[in-house]
Each structure stands twice: as structure tokens, then as C-alpha cells.
């Protein structure tokens, strides 16, 4: 077991962001967390990497487990001059194996001398993923890593993740909004909305009533609904894709 989260609670003041979360990630598996906006997905990630205060519960992760983290966004202030190359050099425990994997992700290197703030969305995504691979991680944490990429772009991105997983055997824990991709690429899906609504194999989660309650019933199509909240859904207000 690489990561084990036991009865985790995170409260911000009176607001309960995460309640009684239990989950585990073993080596080599791809686990995806889905859930509507404000369901605590990013907070869960922050708790795992140690940057969100834990109210109660435990996160068990051996210090020898190497983590690669791809954040949702990287806003580099324009006042800070930083090339992609220099950014990649800010990793302290990189190794040869990681360097090799990072190079495969980066592809052509002609944009490495570009300032981070001037990179295109796709280039920045590649740089962030390459950076996360530099220490040859045991587990890769991806927080909505395909944000800002178009559909072919994100399909390519997930293909790369799959390649990395196959060649390195690392586990992948990711947050995603691309429900259709999630269903085909994951070993396990966790449906989160403050608490864990349901989890299991993609097919069993997709057919569970809790999941359909959150995402609507037409999830097999390319459109997914997450602009509505739980309450509306219970009132059976009909949803449209418009």
C-alpha cells in the first residue's frame, strides 16, 4: 500500500470540507477521483501532500514513497524571470531514470528556454508532468491535469500517463472532470462529495444511484453535468446540456 487515508476529516472553521474519508492506493493502479465543484477533491490532494491542515484522521505514507505532483494551475508572476529549464532544475532529488522519463514527455526541447509565463497550455502541462517525473515517483498525483487542453490534447495527455504507468509501474491518483476518459482509463473510481459517495470499478460506479445523482444519467455520452448541485438534483429538476 502506497497511500492509506484513514477516517480523514478536514474542517475549515465550521465548514466540513471532508468527512470520514477512507481510501488507499496500491502500486501500479490508476485511481480517479470525480466529484462536483467544491466537493473537496483538491483539499484531499492537499491533505495528502501535507499542505492542508488535517482536523482528524490519519494519512499513512512511508517516507520512502516518492511523490510526483502536478498542480491544477501554475501562476507564475510576470515579475519573476524563470525559464522552463530552470524550473525543471528546481527538483532536488531527481535521478537518471526520472530524467529519461521526463525527456520522453517533453519531446522537442526547443521551448525549454522560454519563460514559464509565456508557454502555451499544452507546453506548460508537459513541463509540469515532466517535472513530476524527475524523481521517478512511486505515485503520481494529478490535479485536473488536463485543464485548459482541448479534447485531442487531453486524450494525448492520458495516453502519456498510461505509457508512464506501464513503463515505470507507478501508481496514479488523479482528479478529473473528463468522465468519459476516466471510465476507460481507471482501475478504480472514487466519487467524492464531501464524503465518499461510492467507489469501485468504473462500471459499477457508473451504474450506482449515488453517481447518477451527482452527474446525471446521460454519463455515457460525451457530455457530463456538474454545474448543478446536490440539492437541485434531489428536487428532480431536469437538466439540459445547453
Amino acid at each position: 500500500m502506497l497511500i492509506e487515508v484513514q477516517s480523514l476529516n478536514v474542517h475549515y472553521g465550521n465548514k466540513k470540507v471532508l468527512e470520514n474519508i477512507n481510501l488507499s492506493v496500491s502500486s501500479g493502479e490508476i485511481v480517479t477521483i470525480v466529484g462536483p465543484n467544491g466537493s473537496g477533491k483538491t483539499t484531499l490532494f492537499k491533505a495528502i501532500i501535507g499542505s492542508a491542515p488535517i482536523t482528524s484522521g490519519k494519512i499513512i505514507m512511508s517516507p520512502s514513497v516518492k511523490v510526483g505532483y502536478v498542480p491544477q494551475v501554475l501562476n507564475v508572476d510576470r515579475s519573476l524571470p524563470l525559464t522552463a529549464e530552470r524550473f525543471l532544475s528546481l527538483v532536488n532529488n531527481r535521478n537518471d531514470q526520472g530524467l529519461l522519463r521526463a525527456k520522453q514527455i517533453l519531446g522537442s526541447e526547443d521551448y525549454l528556454s522560454t519563460q514559464i509565463s509565456s508557454l502555451s497550455g499544452g507546453q506548460l502541462q508537459r513541463v509540469l508532468l515532466a517535472r513530476a517525473l524527475l524523481n521517478d515517483p512511486d505515485v503520481l498525483l494529478l490535479d485536473e491535469a488536463t485543464r485548459g487542453l482541448d479534447q485531442p490534447g487531453s486524450a494525448e495527455f492520458y495516453k502519456k500517463i498510461e505509457e508512464v504507468r506501464e513503463s515505470s509501474g507507478c501508481a496514479v491518483l488523479m482528479i478529473s472532470h473528463d468522465l468519459h476518459v476516466v471510465m476507460s482509463a481507471s482501475n478504480r473510481v472514487i466519487c467524492l462529495n464531501g464524503h465518499i459517495c461510492c467507489q469501485g470499478k468504473p462500471q459499477s460506479v457508473a451504474s450506482s444511484p449515488e453517481y447518477r445523482d451527482l452527474f446525471g444519467s446521460n454519463i455515457d455520452g460525451t457530455f457530463a453535468l456538474y454545474q448543478h448541485n446536490h440539492k437541485e438534483n434531489k428536487n428532480r429538476i431536469s437538466h439540459s446540456n445547453a
Partner: peptide, 21 residues
């Protein structure tokens, strides 16, 4: 220096690298 730069860029990235922002 490097730790401060990383914290300046993104505190979550820094935390995931084992730093304490």
C-alpha cells in the same frame, strides 16, 4: 534559495517536494 523559489512559485509543489512553506 531553491526552496524559497519553489515556495514562491507554488506552495503545493513545494509541500509535495517535502518542503515546509
Amino acid at each position: 534559495w531553491s526552496a524559497l523559489l519553489l515556495c514562491t512559485l507554488n506552495e503545493d509543489l513545494a509541500a509535495a517536494s517535502g518542503l515546509y512553506p
